[in-house]
Design a protein around this nucleic acid. Structure first.
Lengths: 231, 231
DNA sequence: ATTACTAGTAGACGAGTAA
DNA sequence: TTTACTCGTCTACTAGTAA
């Protein structure tokens, strides 16, 4: 997103325009943005055009509100700042081991995925993923990961079935090299899927319900395959 | 600060330029900023000029680092986002009641301060301030306050002595209207000074060492007297 | 490779003003 | 009062190129 848009959106958010329609004239917005009434009016039109803002243009005064997609853009920047000031190069996430639906394991063992794993992360995952249900306190950290570029593992087609893109992040569990994998088109989830060269449950002697910590690396990217996480 | 500067600084920060010199060519920075090598080079020169960046211009590749003042600017924006996403209109801070040096009490009872208090906050403080030592976990919240505009109470001169500007924020302790006062030129402190119409220690029966919570209002500003807190 | 100049251009802005 | 058009100016950018 253009910086001029995020600047305006941020100021509108500070005026309370995230959850409610707020009455702001173009003159008032101009003062807040440090520009003329004309330019503020233009900026509003541009933001409407980009669908970052919706407007209720009354006779006396317009009322504006930031759309979900506008909030999304602001969160991206917020998370950049969080990476800068809270977590420089990694996030530690705690959760409980759970049994997944087994889907992840089937997916990841597909050869095209495996090959890319080998070249991007340096190992071929053992079949099956370890599923971790993230503890409540750490849910906020998932957003940071979501907005951090990871290793893009490209999807493919096979037997008429589509295997989508997957984003991987290097990770560690008790000093064991592993990786967090997130299907790129997935929706919000509080389950982390971890793959490893070894059978994690056996190697670390862990079972369902056990508390476990994962360290996710956010800084290990080669410049080519930068891509952001889930939608 | 100009938005184009904060955008560039933020990206440089994400590359690790806050605590260390990093080697980034103008071409590389151009890619990160989505602009040409020439423009990135110019941006660096501007940032150097504004003292947001320092540079070590080697023969092969320049090395840059964000200055303290540059970090300060980034924190301002970070705290705007924190206000948007973490704390919409108030901060709750916990701490322990301590005995201050008595300076605050002497200051605040000066008539010119008192008069401005009356007009801006609607009450005349009881002589003396309540000092609260902020608990460790809440220290981060102080920065949010620091970067939030408060009510400016102007300083004055009297008997050759200078009484500096003070920034006040409306606050509540157990539903009792009060205010947080911060000398504008003060340095970092983990002690909050609270003033109230009533004698807080007596009214609430609190003593040194007692745990106490303060709710600080961040949204109660008339547009004229917006001014940011301590330096 | 670098960094950074100059020149030309596109676009962002404010003044004036209409509705 | 509003919002938002046109138009002239000026700034911010890129291309070409020097060092």
């Amino acid at each position: 997103m253009d910086e001029k848009f995020s600047f305006a959106l941020r100021k509108i958010a500070l005026l309370g325009g995230i959850n409610n329609y707020i009455a702001v004239s173009s003159r008032e917005l101009g003062v807040v943005l440090g520009m003329s009434q004309q330019s503020a009016s233009k900026r509003i039109l541009e933001l409407l055009d980009e669908k970052y803002l919706v407007r209720d243009l009354g006779a006396r005064k317009q009322r504006i509100k930031i759309t979900d997609s506008g909030v999304e853009e602001l969160k991206k920047e917020y998370n950049e700042y969080r990476r800068i000031f809270e977590l420089t190069d990694h996030v530690a996430i705690h959760g409980k081991v759970v049994t997944g639906m087994g889907e992840g394991g089937y997916y990841i063992t597909q050869k095209p995925y495996m090959d890319q794993f080998q070249s991007l992360l340096g190992f071929r995952p053992f079949e099956g993923t370890l599923n971790i249900k993230v503890s409540k306190e750490d849910l906020g950290k998932l957003e940071v990961i979501r907005y951090t570029p990871g290793h893009l593992i490209e999807g493919f087609e096979k037997d008429g079935r589509t295997f989508g893109n997957v984003v991987a992040y290097k990770a560690k569990i008790q000093n064991l090299e592993c990786a967090l994998v997130i299907p790129q088109r997935s929706h919000y989830s509080d389950i982390l899927e971890i793959v490893c060269k070894f059978h994690l449950r056996r190697t670390l002697s862990i079972n369902d319900g056990d508390e476990i910590g994962v360290i996710i690396d956010l800084s290990s990217l080669s410049s080519e395959d930068q891509i952001s996480g889930m939608t």
